[in-house]
Structure formats: C-alpha cells, structure tokens
C-alpha cells in the first residue's frame, strides 16, 4: 500500500520512548499487523497523554525527541504506527533497529537537529501542527495557525531508496 507522508502531527515531548511503551509485549501474540491497531502507545509514560484521544487517532505524524524506539527489535512498533496511518516520525534520533524497521517498511524516520525539534515543540504551543513532507527535496514544513517552520533533512540514499521502493523486501527482491 502506498504510504502517505505528512498530515496532522502529535507531539510526544520525551526522550527514550521505548518499544514496550509503543506496543506492550503482551500484544506480541498477534500474528497480523491490523490486530495491533487499538493498542498504540498504550503504556507511554507522559503527563497528559491519553492513548485513546482523538488527537492520536487523527494524527498522521509523530514529533518527538531523542533515542525514539529504543529497546526491543519488535517490528510491531513501526507496524502499530503504520496501521494507525502514521507513516512519518520526526525525532532528534532513533534506536538503530527501530529506525531500520521504519525504512524497511517503507516508512519515514526523519532526523532533525535538537534546535529544530525544539522549534517544532515551540510551534506546537501555538496550536495544532500540520506537517508537509517533500521527500525528493528532503524538506519538512510544519505549520500551526499562521506560524511556519521549514527545515531540510538528511536521509541516506539507501533509506530513501527503501522508502521509494516500498520497503526492504521489495528492494532486496529486485536486487538479490
């Protein structure tokens, strides 16, 4: 399925959000991605965050801090975002396996500098943030009310190729 990048964003203002918080191990007994849908971020420890909120349901982008997705290798973590139509995450940094899993699924794990992430969180104080992504130009534009922030992002040519191919299985199948 073609991934859609950009849209309304939800901000998770914390570092080191781990895979157990994104999708608890007790749901790893599911053998389809779709079955994970209701359990997104169920155990996230974050003041004022409600995993059942409309804001999360309508979100298409997550904006967060440092070392996102640390912990387990479970691809259930990107999948639970995927089945909730969140195909873009913007963070200061990621745990390696989570980041690779995102690209392997043809999803975008964008890295921005700390000051840029700070600017996005400041922007979020002005109102609901909507994000536009231009992958070929490697640009993020975030808007809230009449305020805008726009940044270029770096992505390795390999990760970009994975997103364009639709994921690692497609890429590897065509090549090896």
């Amino acid at each position: 399925m073609k991934k859609i990048f950009g849209g309304p964003a939800i901000c998770l203002d914390r570092s080191d959000i781990n895979t157990d918080e994104i999708i608890p191990a007790k749901y790893l007994t599911e053998v389809t991605k779709e079955a994970l849908t209701p359990y997104i971020l169920e155990d996230l420890i974050l003041d004022g965050f409600d995993p059942k909120s409309e804001k999360l349901k309508s979100a298409r982008v997550v904006i967060t801090r440092d070392n996102f997705g640390c912990g387990s290798s479970r691809e259930h973590a990107p999948w639970v975002f995927e089945v909730n139509n969140i195909h873009t995450i913007i963070a200061e940094s990621y745990a390696r396996i989570f980041r690779q899993n995102m690209f392997n699924c043809g999803m975008l794990a964008i890295e921005l500098k700390k000051e840029q992430i700070d600017a996005l969180f400041t922007l979020a104080k002005k109102g609901a943030v909507t994000v536009e992504i231009d992958l070929p130009a490697q640009k993020v534009v975030a808007a809230a009310g009449d305020k805008k922030e726009s940044f270029s992002f770096a992505i390795s040519p390999f990760d970009k190729a994975l997103v364009e191919a639709g994921g690692w299985v497609e890429f590897a199948d065509a090549r090896y």
């Binding site: 691809e75 396996i97 690779q100 392997n104 690692w168 299985v169």
Partner: peptide
Amino acid sequence: GVGTTDLEVGMLKGVCA
C-alpha cells in the same frame, strides 16, 4: 538484532544491510 522485515529478507536471501 533485527526486525521482522530484515529477518524475512534474511530467511529468503541470506543477506542483511
């Protein structure tokens, strides 16, 4: 450690990036 997609390609092709 890798995710399920890397594992899948590993099982099928014997490679990983």
